[in-house]
């Protein structure tokens, strides 16, 4: 079973998301802020990270930057789920290893799962 790490600070969202993911047959772990997320993935390397940008304790970019520095982490596929989505940021994220950027209001959970599927099956 593939492991998905959700790094998201909004409870409602990560709850809904993880529910959907579990239904979709994925193993889900949740971290509520950037640092916690990094610690978590270091301990247990996920198959994919669903990463929010605006979070306390290291934002999404910082997380990605850190991941890039770590050999073990830098190749983990990342899908950004955020409510911002300016091209500057998207580009930056893509340069840091993000495979996709999904704006929460434009993508419902199901669609998110589809994207995940696309990435890792």
């Amino acid at each position: 079973m593939k492991k998905i790490l959700i790094i998201e600070d909004e409870e409602l969202l990560y709850n809904l998301l993880s529910k959907k993911l579990i239904t979709g047959g994925y193993d889900v772990s949740i971290s509520k802020d950037g640092q916690k997320g990094l610690d978590s993935m270091k301990k247990d390397i996920p198959d994919l990270v669903l990463l929010d940008i605006i979070m306390p304790n290291k934002n999404g970019f910082e997380v990605m930057e850190e991941m890039q520095k770590d050999e073990r982490l830098k190749n983990i596929p990342i899908i950004i789920i955020s409510n911002s989505g300016q091209p500057v940021e998207i580009d930056k994220a893509k340069n840091l290893g993000a495979k996709d950027w999904l704006v929460k209001t434009d993508f419902e959970p199901l669609e998110v799962i589809k994207k995940v599927k696309k990435q890792i099956g």
Binding site: E10, L12, L13, L17, N83, K104, T105, E108, P109
Partner: peptide
């Protein structure tokens, strides 16, 4: 982000 957060929460 601020505007969308509640919206996405409701949406989902």
């Amino acid at each position: 982000h601020q505007l969308r957060t509640p919206l996405s929460a409701v949406k989902w």
